[in-house]
């Protein structure tokens, strides 16, 4: 694992308050997918095969969600929300690129090899992320569930025994913290807004809730990983508490649907993923081996 390249921010203190500006821009200083790809290419990042499998799952979740959020842009209910959904989509895409770059290092593949040239059955995303956007309430329901799961997951993963997984999670957890806040705010507003918005919010939660169960299923891989990964079932109690509290504040019941049979982690997907991948992969596959 290499040290991420540092961007040095100029320190404005020496100039006193005359340096105050609302348009001073910097690239910031954080672990970037490019740093991980570089480490992979140089051979300094080499995950164990089972760690790579695990990273693939998290990467695919984030990639599929980013693709869904990308479909929203220019279609948001208000321009401010277009910008917000764009930020969340870019965060998820960043997480996907980091996890996939790291996973690929185990097999000599790049993030793009994995994103564009795997078949549907080789994807490891959970069904929740594959669900179509629906209306804004359905999207917010999906975001709320996703963030309520990803937040404790990344928080715990940031102390993984695998240093790269820990580093990716440490960056991601701060971003997902905001995703949880954003979707919580909208859930409260839609539930407590008008009759129509309340009906739609409840319907959106009904639509997405059956896919909660799959997120918390343990399997041989997560058992085998020990301290490198987070045992999915260990996050369920916190998820129930977080979501329960918000739903209670919103005056909505926790949907009582039976959980859907998942299978995404074994390559068994919803009907929706095929279309999503067809769209995502079409151009790259038209020009195999091309550089963009």
């Amino acid at each position: 694992m290499t040290t991420p390249q540092k961007h040095r921010n100029p320190t404005p203190f020496a100039q006193g308050d005359s340096a105050a500006s609302a348009t001073r821009i910097t690239p910031g200083n954080a672990l970037r997918p490019e740093d991980i790809a570089l480490a992979a290419a140089e051979g300094t990042a080499h995950p164990a095969p089972e760690v790579a499998e695990y990273a693939l799952r998290l990467g695919d979740d984030a990639l599929v969600l980013a693709q869904r959020l990308g479909q929203w842009i220019s279609r948001g209910p208000e321009l401010e929300e277009d910008v917000a959904l764009g930020n969340i989509g870019l965060d998820q895409l960043g997480h996907a690129r980091s996890f996939l770059s790291y996973a690929g290092a185990a097999w000599g593949k790049t993030e793009d090899d994995l994103a564009y040239f795997r078949r549907e059955s080789e994807f490891r995303s959970a069904h929740l992320f594959e669900q179509p956007n629906g209306d804004f309430a359905a999207t917010m329901a999906r975001q709320f569930i996703a963030a309520s799961w990803q937040y404790p997951l990344y928080r715990e993963l940031s102390s993984s025994s695998d240093p790269m997984l820990a580093a990716i999670a440490a960056k991601a957890v701060k971003e997902v913290d905001y995703h949880l806040d954003h979707s919580t705010q909208w859930l409260l507003r839609l539930a407590g807004g008008t009759d129509e918005s309340r009906r739609r919010m409840a319907a959106g939660l009904d639509l997405m809730w059956p896919f909660v169960g799959e997120l918390f299923e343990d399997d041989p891989l997560t058992a085998q990983l020990g301290d490198a990964a987070v045992v999915p079932s260990s996050l369920k109690a916190e998820f129930d508490r977080t979501t329960g509290a918000v739903l209670a504040e919103a005056g909505l019941a926790v949907p009582a649907h039976p959980m859907a049979t998942g299978g995404g982690r074994r390559g068994r997907h919803s009907e929706h993923l095929g279309y999503l991948l067809a769209e995502m992969q079409v151009l790259a596959r038209e020009f195999p081996g091309a550089s963009w």
């Binding site: 990639l63 948001g76 910008v83 764009g86 870019l90 895409l93 690129r97 079409v282 151009l283």
Partner: peptide
């Protein structure tokens, strides 16, 4: 073209650019 961008890097760049345009409109 966001959903069909041929690499993940290009997808991120394009998303950020289109998002900027919403910001500029604002």
């Amino acid at each position: 073209w966001i959903t069909r961008a041929p690499s993940l890097k290009r997808k991120a760049i394009l998303m950020a650019k289109v998002q900027d345009e919403a910001g500029h409109g604002l």
